[in-house]
Simulated assay, not measured.
Amino acid sequence: MAMRISELEIHEFTYRLDDVGMSHGHQGYDPGNVLEPPGFVLTIRTADGLEGHYRGFYFVPPMLAQIRMASSALLDRDPLEREDIWQDLWKAMRHLDHVGMGPIDVALWDLAGNHYGASVSELLGGTSEPVPAYASTFMADDNGGLDSPEAYADFAEECLDRGFPAYKLHGFGAPDGDVAACRAVADRVGDEMDLMLDPASEYDTYADTLRVGRALDELDFFWYEDPMADGGESMEMTRQLARDLDTPILGVEHVRGGPYTRANHLADEALDLVRADAHLDGGITGAMKIANVAESFGRDVELHVGGPAHLHCMSAIRNTNYYEHGLVHPAGIEWMSAQGFLESPEHIDDDGTVPIPDGPGLGVEVDWDFVDERLTNHEVIDEPLVSGLA
């Protein structure tokens, strides 16, 4: 007899970010300030007690709203039928942005690994080889951290000394400041590290976007990521930018169309590299679909932010380059991606690589003491909620 999903359990809690504040919609260095953003653990459980977990750390309210809505499509289903569940949820959430699918799908993969006694990497047919990581910085600040081009260059050199083979600037969000920072970093470590710039969609005009991109061409940057304020939604803009510049354009991080959006952008020659995100793009199933689309176009896929799911995905993707380790800062801030586990899955070895967790499922353990100490809400869903999904 097939297994059946009997309940969903949600533990909501808060993280603690010391010396971090908010500026212009971004987290940044702010000595003495403390942020306590929300997080959660989703547990999917079968009637015989088998479990799978997902630990969430960003865009928590919309994710939880959609997970609750999806309960009617999950309860009493066979949890091993991940593809069938994925297709049903993609259709059911077609009027939404699908962000609730990622946590559900990752938890189902974790459950499957626990059922088979195998890591997600093994289930995907991946290798056990560690993956190279790049240091992904916080945005600039005015508080003595990343507050000047020289500070970015100093930190790049520090990251090189720690073994990182690549370094990505989240800069000032202003063209002149970003160009100055990129020049300083390239002068310092450009012969020894791959370099990337992510303006976090802060540039308002195409003229500014192009001007920065031409500087990156001169500096031989590895990629230029989602620079425009439209978040990469305009295929016409990104196509023209890809034509005008030599530096590869990485995009659609902010577009929730899954593999279908990526296929559209690639077919329209509107990108050079594509983003995928197991957290936001339909889980491990969605991220692997995007990787396959990119591979069919002869392009690379780069996974957005950290987490164990991305390590397992990267073990089974040929056309990818770097794991995003961040956010990092000279002050040694412990960002959310490393919190909530007994041991951080993002341990960086001396050669700048991250090992693939080799235990069953995701191969990581939730730090339940951390969750319980900071718990804000606990919920068990064992009956379908009224969802409005159809």
Rank of each mutant, 00 (worst) to 15 (best):
2 A>H: 10
8 L>N: 01
10 I>C: 03
15 Y>A: 01
16 R>E: 10
19 D>N: 15
30 D>Q: 14
31 P>G: 05
33 N>S: 11
37 P>W: 12
38 P>V: 04
41 V>G: 08
44 I>G: 01
47 A>Y: 12
48 D>Q: 08
48 D>E: 11
50 L>R: 13
53 H>T: 09
55 R>L: 15
58 Y>R: 07
61 P>E: 07
61 P>T: 07
65 A>W: 11
66 Q>Y: 10
71 S>R: 06
72 S>V: 15
73 A>D: 06
74 L>W: 09
79 P>G: 02
86 W>L: 06
87 Q>K: 11
96 L>T: 02
100 G>F: 09
105 D>A: 06
105 D>Q: 04
107 A>K: 02
108 L>H: 07
109 W>C: 02
113 G>M: 06
125 G>P: 02
129 E>L: 13
131 V>E: 00
132 P>A: 13
135 A>L: 11
152 Y>Q: 04
153 A>T: 05
154 D>K: 10
157 E>F: 13
160 L>N: 02
164 F>Y: 15
166 A>F: 13
169 L>D: 00
169 L>Y: 08
175 P>S: 06
175 P>W: 10
188 R>F: 10
192 E>Y: 09
193 M>P: 05
194 D>K: 14
197 L>A: 04
207 A>E: 11
207 A>V: 07
207 A>N: 03
208 D>N: 14
209 T>N: 07
210 L>M: 07
214 R>K: 15
215 A>N: 03
220 D>W: 12
223 W>T: 03
226 D>N: 09
228 M>K: 12
228 M>L: 15
229 A>M: 15
229 A>Q: 14
234 S>P: 08
235 M>C: 08
235 M>F: 14
240 Q>D: 12
248 P>L: 10
255 V>W: 08
257 G>W: 12
268 D>T: 14
278 A>W: 06
279 H>R: 09
289 K>G: 01
289 K>T: 00
306 G>R: 01
315 S>V: 04
318 R>P: 00
321 N>A: 13
321 N>W: 13
323 Y>F: 15
332 G>Y: 14
333 I>Y: 10
333 I>W: 14
335 W>A: 10
335 W>R: 01
336 M>W: 07
338 A>R: 12
345 P>N: 04
347 H>P: 00
350 D>G: 15
351 D>G: 13
351 D>C: 10
355 P>V: 10
356 I>M: 05
360 P>N: 09
360 P>Q: 04
362 L>W: 05
362 L>H: 10
365 E>H: 10
367 D>R: 02
370 F>D: 04
378 H>E: 06
380 V>L: 09
381 I>A: 09
381 I>F: 11
382 D>K: 06
383 E>H: 09
383 E>F: 08
385 L>H: 03
388 G>E: 01
